[in-house]
Design a protein around this nucleic acid. Structure first.
Ligand SMILES: [Mn+2]
Ligand SMILES: [Mn+2]
Ligand SMILES: [Zn+2]
Ligand SMILES: [Zn+2]
Lengths: 154, 154
DNA sequence: GTGAAAATGAAAGTCAATTTCAAAAATAAG
DNA sequence: CTTATTTTTGAAATTGACTTTCATTTTCAC
């Protein structure tokens, strides 16, 4: 049976994926999925775990970890590895590639897309006869607020 | 005393840095430095350690590790963190920023620079009022050889 | 040479990520 | 509604790359 995801919500899509894998539905996992997908952040497991525990103190770290991995496999989350060495996950609401500006002062993350950069990347790949599968573009620096803060303290 | 590095070899520069820090010269460290700087690769500690041991079996992992950190502090090496989760070091022969194309099949790494991309990055940073300190641009895919290999096996 | 100071390396410690496994929860079968 | 089967859970153990420790060895200034 072919499945049309076009009219499915992300959560439904997740249930469907689970069904196809012979998974069972659990209260805790559903809560994690719903909470994560509703947010619009780049969560580390730890951060997500801490927030979830406020409401659901019996959720374990492993469950959060495994749920994020599941969502990533299902294509509902994307795992990001920025320079701080902690994996972060963001929901994929509508497939829509983007790159990141990251403030090394406060951790603020801004997303951007730039068609010209993407094009130039392809030109480079072609030049070296590579077929690219993915790329990573991250700009690290200080956001406006952190620049101001820094000026004050010096 | 101000030091002019312009006419110094990288190794001399290293000795100078060591001197300024009150370090002593050791046979093993010198060998590691000389071997590493002569190569033109992106070495992981492990890889470098294994190669060095072929000639100098008494060199320890810690010494290789510490020497690479030293070189990085001295500005003679640059630490890179690609997607495989293992830190790599490359000599900085002439200060010269570049980005990387990485083959996920064989590990081959190609360096490139692109002024237009750099410029566009600055435009983006400006747009969001960021002051960037560094950036990371990595293109992952298959090199020509690995594409061929893949076609054969399918 | 001698002694103070730095370098070394085996082993231990870190830290996030990942796996294990016995108990709990969900679902299928009766 | 039971009972049986399968999946899920979480505390604890393990992993793997990195980093530090500390007793011993090497370097080097005198
Ligand atoms: Mn994002
Ligand atoms: Mn390079
Ligand atoms: Zn900031
Ligand atoms: Zn290749």
């Amino acid at each position: 049976m072919k499945v049309n995801f076009k009219n499915k919500s992300a959560l439904d899509q997740f249930k469907l994926e689970k069904y196809k894998r012979g998974l069972k539905t659990s209260k805790k996992r559903s809560y994690i999925v719903q909470y994560f997908l509703a947010a619009d952040r780049h969560y580390s497991i730890e951060e997500l775990y801490d927030e979830l525990r406020a409401e659901h103190p019996r959720i374990g770290y492993s469950t959060v970890y495994r749920t994020m991995k599941l969502l990533t496999e299902c294509g509902l989350a994307s795992e990001r590895n920025f320079a701080d060495g902690v994996a972060r996950f963001e929901p994929i609401h509508r497939t829509h590639h983007h790159d990141h500006l990251i403030c090394t002062g406060c951790g603020k993350i801004i997303e951007f897309t730039n068609r010209n950069i993407e094009r130039l990347q392809q030109t480079i790949a072609r030049k070296y006869k590579f077929v690219t599968a993915s790329h990573k573009l991250e700009l690290y620096g200080l956001c406006a607020a952190c620049q101001k803060k820094k000026r004050k303290n010096s």
